[in-house]
């Protein structure tokens, strides 16, 4: 059988295949509605739901929820009868399965281990995700877009969410499930998973590019400078941009909100940047400290 078909038909992975289609479907649908509403708003026409500040819970919501609950139960029942729990080989403490994959919903985080120090990928970044999600109600000061879909009125919010959720979370899960094989090596769908495959891919640290040992003091200082200038520059650049183009927004946000938002944003953006460094330039670490490496 084609290796790709083999992988996507594994009982374990059916959920992720379903997820891919469902997420795509709802994403397209949501954006379609958002653009439609944007056109209405631009033409000065009313948007469905824009003015419905309050809607009855019982009729519109509960009925739909009940039906959806039944549909989901039907689906789950059929699924659970038709597909048995995908058991693997008997647990053996002396054998580590290869590839050893986390539960699918954590595969995005596991993928980060390729690019980051485990302490960052496993502790700091997940904590920041949780903290960031908790902070959203407090840092979102845009009152628009309640009860209806819109893009033009919430550009920043929609773009940042879409990037963080679709790309950094879901895409990494899909990569982890379908594209990572033995040895956590990259396998294209048409490639056979080969347990004895060897890939020679020497990585180096950033300072090694200019001939400085990253573990030496100069290496440490250079690394710290690079990371520090990214953080400081990332803090200052949006401020100057908004100051020039949208000073109102800055006053509305206030300093605390601004710093929180920008810190979370540049941290998030550090992830794709590091991925590019690792994949394209084969850079392992930028900055090595005795406690963690970036």
């Amino acid at each position: 059988m084609n290796p790709f078909i083999e992988i996507i038909t594994q009982p374990d992975n059916i959920a992720i295949v379903i997820m891919v289609f469902m997420v795509t479907f709802f994403m397209v649908w949501a954006f379609q509605q958002a653009f439609q509403n944007d056109r209405l708003l631009a033409a000065g026409l009313p948007v469905d739901g824009e003015n419905d500040r309050f809607v009855d819970t019982f009729k519109p919501l509960v009925r739909i929820e009940l039906i959806i609950a039944i549909v989901v139960m039907v689906g789950l029942t059929i699924w659970s009868i038709a597909v048995d729990a995908p058991l693997e080989e008997i647990a053996n403490p002396t054998i580590t399965p290869n590839p050893a994959k986390a539960p699918w919903y954590f595969l995005g985080l596991q993928e980060l281990l390729v690019y980051f120090d485990p302490w960052l990928a496993g502790v700091v970044l997940p904590s920041l995700i949780v903290v960031g999600l908790l902070a959203i109600p407090y840092i979102d000061i845009n009152p628009k877009g309640n009860g209806y879909y819109t893009f033009s009125e919430r550009k920043y919010a929609v773009i940042i969410f879409s990037f963080g959720f679709f790309v950094l979370w879901l895409l990494l899960i899909v990569i982890g499930v379908f594209f990572r094989g033995p040895g956590w090596l990259w396998y294209w769908p048409w490639q056979e998973w080969d347990h004895s495959r060897v890939v020679f891919e020497p990585t180096r640290d950033l300072t090694a590019l200019i001939g400085i040992d990253s573990r030496s003091l100069p290496g440490f200082i250079i690394g710290a400078l690079v990371v520090g200038s990214y953080m400081v520059g990332g803090m200052i650049a949006p401020y100057r941009y908004w100051k020039k183009n949208n000073p109102e927004l800055l006053t509305q946000l206030g300093m605390v909100r601004y710093v929180t938002i920008v810190f979370l944003f540049i941290t998030m953006m550090a992830i794709p940047i590091k991925m590019v460094l690792r994949l394209v330039f084969l850079i392992k670490y930028v900055w090595i400290t005795p406690w963690f490496s970036v």
Binding site: K59, R63, I64, I67, I70, V71, M73, V74, T77, I81
Partner: peptide
């Protein structure tokens, strides 16, 4: 809204009956 709800009733009835049939299947299985 009215049109919508009558359409929803059919969906509701269809899936409810299906769920009942499934329950029988579950027991048999």
């Amino acid at each position: 809204n009215k049109n919508n709800s009558s359409y929803r009733v059919y969906v509701f009835v269809f899936f409810s009956v299906l769920l009942l049939a499934l329950s029988v299947w579950v027991v048999w299985d």
